Amino acid sequence: MNKEEIAALPPKIEIAIKAGRAAADACADDGGSANCDRVVIPMPGVRESWVKGLRGYLQQANGWHCRGFHLDTPFAGIGNRRYAGVQAMHKSLKDQGVACYVWYQMD
């Protein structure tokens, strides 16, 4: 991902967060596991300074994943509501042409 692509991300992320918030609010049942689900945008070779101001954090690469930007999930819910919100964020970003995936971390 280059600097121009990163500069185009903020409005796309805001649209995705709105979609996630709506999906989480529509999910009445917050049962299920308290997983740490979140959307990740792969950013191999990207410097920390390039993503300053974006809503999330840049994780270092490890043996299983390339360096990626983990988006904030600023909506209520830790179980089914969080899952619904994160899935909506993922779909929104994919529909906007952003390469991303969902990170699942079990508790």
Rank of each mutant, 00 (worst) to 15 (best):
V46W: 00
A24G: 15
A76V: 11
Q87E: 11
A7L: 04
S92W: 07
E48Q: 15
Q59E: 05
Y104V: 06
I78N: 12
F75V: 06
R67C: 00
V86Y: 03
K52M: 02
L93V: 01
L71Q: 04
Y57D: 08
A24Y: 13
Q87Y: 10
F75E: 04
I41V: 15
I15S: 15
Q59T: 04
P11V: 11
R21D: 12
R47G: 10
D30C: 07
A99C: 07
I15W: 08
Y104K: 06
P44F: 07
Q60P: 07
A34M: 13
A23K: 09
K94P: 00
N35H: 11
V51W: 05
I41D: 08
R47E: 11
D25G: 15
G85W: 04
K12F: 10
G77W: 07
P42Y: 09
N80K: 10
A88Y: 04
A99P: 02
N35K: 12
I78S: 14
S33Q: 12
D25V: 15
K18S: 14
P74E: 04
S49W: 12
A84D: 03
E4L: 14
D95V: 02
P74F: 05
S92T: 15
G68F: 07
V51G: 01
T73P: 02
H65K: 04
A23G: 08
C27I: 02
M89N: 07
A61F: 06
A84Q: 08
R21N: 11
G68Y: 07
K18A: 15
R21P: 03
V46G: 01
A7V: 06
G63P: 00
G63K: 02
K52E: 09
G53L: 06
S33G: 07
H90E: 06
G31Y: 03
L93E: 01
C100K: 01
R38T: 05
K12L: 15
Y101M: 05
G32E: 01
M43Q: 05
D107I: 00
A26G: 12
Y83N: 11
V46H: 01
A76H: 14
A7K: 13
A34W: 14
C27L: 10
G77E: 03
C36S: 10
G85M: 05
I41H: 11
A76N: 12
N2G: 15
V40E: 09
V98K: 04
L58H: 04
D25Y: 14
A84S: 09
G68Q: 11
I15K: 15
I78R: 14
R21Q: 14
V86C: 03
A26Y: 08
G68T: 02
E5W: 10
Q60R: 13
C36F: 13
P42R: 04
Y83E: 14
A7M: 03
Q96P: 02
